[in-house]
Amino acid sequence: MSNAIIISPADDVAVAIEPIAAGEAVDYGPAQAEAFCAREDIPIYHKVAVRDLAAGQKICKYGEHIGEALYDIARGSHVHVHNVGSVREDLDNK
């Protein structure tokens, strides 16, 4: 039974569809190539990295960029406001 969902095959993150405890296997179904475990607790509907992400790298969800990694993020980590920054369009220089 899956405990996560990945929206687009290109995505760097899966979304937990139930709370996933640290050390528990992350399972997002047929799209998943390799088994890995959550490195920390992932609350329901929060994101978990499905691959290692380097600091400064754009993070993909919905097949689009949702922000930038502020630090190196290892596979299985909780991906949220503590390690992701928003990349906002500069309105004044449109």
Partner: peptide, 18 residues
């Protein structure tokens, strides 16, 4: 939104424009 797992405004908007 953040408590619900939404991290950035881009992410929130992407969910809507889907």
């Amino acid at each position: 939104n953040k408590a619900g797992g939404i991290t950035t405004l881009e992410e929130k908007s992407l969910g809507c424009i889907h």
